[in-house]
Design a protein around this nucleic acid. Structure first.
Lengths: 346, 346
DNA sequence: TCCAGCAGATTAATGGATTTATCAACTCTG
DNA sequence: CAGAGTTGATAAATCCATTAATCTGCTGGA
């Protein structure tokens, strides 16, 4: 910058003002501005952000940590954040949570990023409040927003879509089609206690239509292939297997569908399947997958908005985004139950 | 840091040495070390990375920019990078290329990150050398590695898997099963000129077995759903439609399979499909997808390794990783061609 | 004519960690 | 016991951009 200033025949303060778009009480004539800009171009000057961050204690970078970067639902949330980030001149930095846990102890990312200067705050997706990293960060007073419904008994700032009406809409779709035996599957075990939103939504839908709810109706098993497969098999070993299944997250749907097919059942003829959350890929399977579209982009945007408030030192509260409301997107995987139930081939 | 130094009764230089693990010619007694560490703990001191980066002109952050963060193949590459990053104490920062292109002009990310201080270098996935951002960065002398085979006539540093034997293995798998009419589909148009590795691999396999290669054998259409669908339809409008298809990237497979199914064709009975690159999700479709597994993790790791060399100012060359060699993973989507060809239902 | 006011620009302090040069005190060695 | 060598630690320069405080002309109004 000193070099640029020298070549342009001005002081560094002027260069700084030009480059950062007018700062402090430094006023510039248009002519000087242009001359400096030309010099910047000519010298190939690049602003040093470390220095900028140091001086202004504001890095302009937000770290987003999610369990799997390939998760398409969270990618949609990030798209929402990105719109706002763009407007605010912020950069989003995505990290897979699995990358930052080494030998059971939490991260690198902690030690490297939580310090001042590199990132201004965190947006984290955890399904468990027990997460060490999150506890540590909040304890240190680092601005942090969790993409999840609020955890009862904890005062983390949480922003996410409202799962209850979403899952309820999924269940109601099946009920409206005429299904009477409906089960729900998926979700990290600790994420679906009896009072969690998804569970509530599912129960509410069934209760409202006087449908039976057994101990087998809700299987919370995590998103692992093997677990999902086992759960599906379990469902169809029951005396009255379901004719409709709500998969509580679309990312668990492939494993669920595969198992259903492997059991010799046809979708939707023998079983209807609807997944919670909508992603593009749902339209590309055969049968394509009916889903419930949630305001995930909006939640992402709201999450960043909330984080920015936190960073600015303003008070911020947890929010459940419910606008626009859940929309059922019917594709090929849901249909009225057939009269003649097919028997499992094996 | 000054505060910590004061409380521990030492100078800031000592604290710096303790925190950064011994630097310069500052020697420490074990006793002092412990005392400082305790003070750091007690005061909740967090190292300011902006200052650190400013002074040492080394941020410890690598920016990875890829077209779609949900791309599972690239996620595998990132896992490879991550191993090395962990060892080196580096942080990887992932950004979706789509997020950083605003109004057709390139980015935010450019202006924000390419300056010194925030990131030390870039690993970029582009399939086109025309990419403005890449050209700009390399012109500015920013350390950058492209995840792609080398672009003829350009001297970018490129690291990737060797597509030629990979695609050849895919085609040979079909040939070994007895297929004689084979087509290849997918890939950005400009990514498959006649002499590109994938094209070469495909041609080589066919040539070696004296199989016909027509103008319809290789359709490079990009990864868009609609384009893929149109290409597949085109294939089956031909006089002698293929009995085997190589989809040149597994991320294009869902759209391809969906279209095949929609045409009333059965996989693998009527058509065998094999995809280039292996991802976990390939095992979860029904029929599950045969693939060719490439050393993608290794390429990712090698890419970062090369970037680090560049950052250190050492010379670095483009590399095509070919160890371990391609492995065909046969699942349900490939089988010998059936004698009695099914006709398209519609 | 004189001064207030303003446009346009400069000076210099600042942020926090790193690192070289330097220093004090102590231990050997011949 | 003098001088060399070592250990343990400090002072101060440095990295680069930001910005509050200041300064210089110049213009318009009284």
């Amino acid at each position: 910058m000193r070099e640029v200033a020298a070549k342009a025949g001005v002081s560094v303060a002027v260069v700084s003002a030009v480059v950062s778009g007018g700062s402090g009480n430094v006023r510039l004539s248009e002519e000087t501005r242009q001359r400096v800009l030309r010099t910047v171009e000519a010298t190939g000057y690049r602003r040093n952000h470390a220095a900028r961050a140091l001086r202004s204690s504001h890095a302009g970078v937000i770290s987003v940590v999610i369990p799997r970067v390939t998760n398409a639902v969270l990618a949609r949330a990030m798209e929402g954040m990105q719109q706002l980030a763009q407007d605010e001149g912020l950069v989003l930095m995505l990290t897979d949570a699995n990358w930052i846990v080494a030998d059971g102890k939490v991260s690198n990312l902690m030690t490297r990023l939580s310090g001042t200067g590199i990132v201004d705050g965190f947006i984290v997706r955890t399904t468990s409040v027990g997460n060490e990293a999150v506890a540590d960060l909040t304890a240190r007073g680092v601005p942090l927003v969790i993409l999840h419904e609020p955890f009862p008994g904890h005062d983390h700032v949480c922003v996410w879509v409202d799962d209850e009406p979403g899952v309820r809409a999924a269940a109601e779709h099946l009920i409206e089609l005429g299904h009477e035996h409906i089960a729900m599957i998926g979700g990290p075990r600790h994420d679906i206690p009896d009072d969690a939103a998804r569970s509530r939504g599912f129960r509410a839908a069934l209760a409202e239509h006087d449908l039976p709810l057994t101990s087998q109706s809700i299987l919370a098993v995590g998103y692992g292939e093997a677990e999902i497969a086992a759960a599906i098999r379990k469902l169809f070993q029951a005396a009255t297997p379901p004719t409709g299944i709500v998969v509580d997250n679309v990312v668990a749907a492939p494993a669920a569908m595969a198992t259903v097919v492997d059991l010799g059942l046809r979708v939707p003829d023998d079983v209807s399947v609807i997944a919670y959350h909508d992603i593009d890929a749902a339209g590309l399977t055969r049968p394509s997958l009916s889903t419930v579209k949630m305001p995930v982009e909006e939640a992402g945007r709201k999450g960043l908005e909330t984080l920015l408030r936190l960073i600015a030192g303003e008070p911020a509260e947890s929010v459940l985004v419910s606008d626009p409301p859940p929309v059922v997107i019917q594709r090929q995987s849901t249909a009225p139950p057939s009269r003649t139930r097919h028997r499992r081939r094996t």
